[in-house]
Design a protein around this nucleic acid. Sequence first.
DNA 1: AGGGTGACGGGCC
DNA 2: GGGCCCGCCACCC
Length: 112
Amino acid sequence: MKRSDQTIEDIRAAVRRVPRGRVATYGQIAKEAGYAGHPRLAGWVLANTPPGVKLPWHRVINAQGKISLPPKSAGYRRQKQLLADEGVLLIKSRVDLARYQWKPRSEAPVLD
DNA sequence: AGGGTGACGGGCC
DNA sequence: GGGCCCGCCACCC
């Protein structure tokens, strides 16, 4: 098993934890997946995830609250639409992170 | 082995 | 607020 295969699964798992109607940044996803400080990893995984893989990829945006896809692209419009369907609207091309950013709750302490 | 790149982000002007 | 730099992951020649 390649190191990257595990990385991919870790990142995807983190993306799947983002609830409907909320968004997370690439850096946040990387951190949640155990790769703090490596936002590009999250970006890379999403960019290379084939369609068909069940994943709420549209809930991942950049730290500026913007969609990280070319504004003219079909992908951009798709993401914008999916977010709108969940009640997350873009104002001036941005999502209000203060309001919609996912606040992951820390794990309950494991008592062995 | 070496060089370039990116669905990023923090630090610094 | 905006713009530039540069690092680090994994990828691709």
